[in-house]
Design a protein around this nucleic acid. Structure first.
Lengths: 187, 187
DNA sequence: CTGATTTTTTGATTTTTATCAATAGCCTTC
DNA sequence: GAAGGCTATTGATAAAAATCAAAAAATCAG
């Protein structure tokens, strides 16, 4: 529990009491490598904190899977559009290594927000950070060549390259796996 | 003021009193066509509601400008990463037609959130919608050909095509203006 | 350890799209 | 309504990356 408390406290100086209220609703979950946190078509009703592990979010297009994002230790993960709307997810999230999670259900989270506005405040701050990160990812990928995108990923998120398969990284970077393989051998 | 009230009420059944508190902090602003709401390097300290108008957000890369997004009547607009972090913006936002805005300053908004958690709740809901829209935009552009991206834009946001210049749309869709011009003449 | 399966690399070719260049259209503004 | 400045189109060529195909390397199961 310490890791998540440290991270939450970095976002705002929230009262200890509120944090305890939040932690009281968390439950631990362990996902073996290769299994899924959420599958396409299901409603995502858990927000997960990755206490340890590495996951990949992807969707299917013409039988191929296309990586949307990777998330790692210390980050929150959910199929956000499904979690927010409580409608079926179009993305699947799989554990690329064994994951130890803390989860809170959508309903519990909404109940907490009603009772304790400090928690909604904290969530707002976290959401803002995720929004900014997403916007940066979008811009980062615009008008860069395949090689530039790969080099930038090495700089910003080297863990992804270490832990994910070439094909998974390639679709994340919007290129074919052959192209990524050639870029790798050229540098 | 009616338009903004209608839109806010759609997000949550917020007390009338809270809405009035919010509206009390809004000020009107009019931006002539061609002028900017926020310029690269400035800190974005206003959140704007577009009561009527059409704006484009872009950044510069190698002297060319690259469109990040278009926003239209009924939407909120800010250089979000700058507004959230209160650090200099890397994007510029310009009025593509004369704009009538309602604005609230960052400080006023934060003060309201402290006093009235209903407003932070409302903001959270809006932010979630914007997050989902951004995620969809990101996914929408993955692994589609230039033509598919253009056709999808026609389906989802035809106003953009009507109101923006070819070069502005082209960089939004991640292609050269010549390519977009050829696609247009081919359909 | 070994055979089988999956993943990655490498090669040849084609497709897509960018770039460079020139022309045509079209608003302004005088 | 003509001159000048943008904007858009069209054409030729080059570059980037996808696709198709096969070989090599790595991983896994028994």
């Amino acid at each position: 529990m310490e890791a998540i408390l440290n991270i939450l406290q970095k976002f705002s100086n929230i009262p200890q009491e509120s944090l305890e209220r939040f932690v009281g609703k968390l439950h631990e979950k362990s996902i073996p490598k290769g299994e899924t946190l959420i599958r396409e078509g299901e409603v995502c009703n858990q927000l997960s904190f990755i206490n340890k592990g590495f996951v990949r979010s992807f969707y299917f297009k013409d039988k191929k899977d296309i990586t949307i994002s990777f998330s790692m230790t210390g980050e929150f993960i959910a199929s956000m559009s499904s979690f927010i709307s409580q409608k079926p997810s179009y993305e699947t999230i799989e554990a690329l290594e064994h994951c130890y999670l803390y989860q809170i259900s959508y309903q519990d989270l909404m109940d907490l927000f009603e009772k304790d506005s400090h928690l909604e405040h904290l969530y707002r701050l976290i959401l803002e950070q995720y929004y900014v990160a997403l916007e940066e990812h979008l811009i980062f990928s615009k008008f860069k060549t395949a090689k530039e995108r790969y080099l930038e990923l090495i700089e910003t998120k080297p863990l992804i390259i270490q832990k994910a398969a070439v094909g998974q990284v390639a679709s994340y970077l919007d290129m074919s796996l052959e192209t990524l393989s050639r870029i790798r051998s050229s540098i």
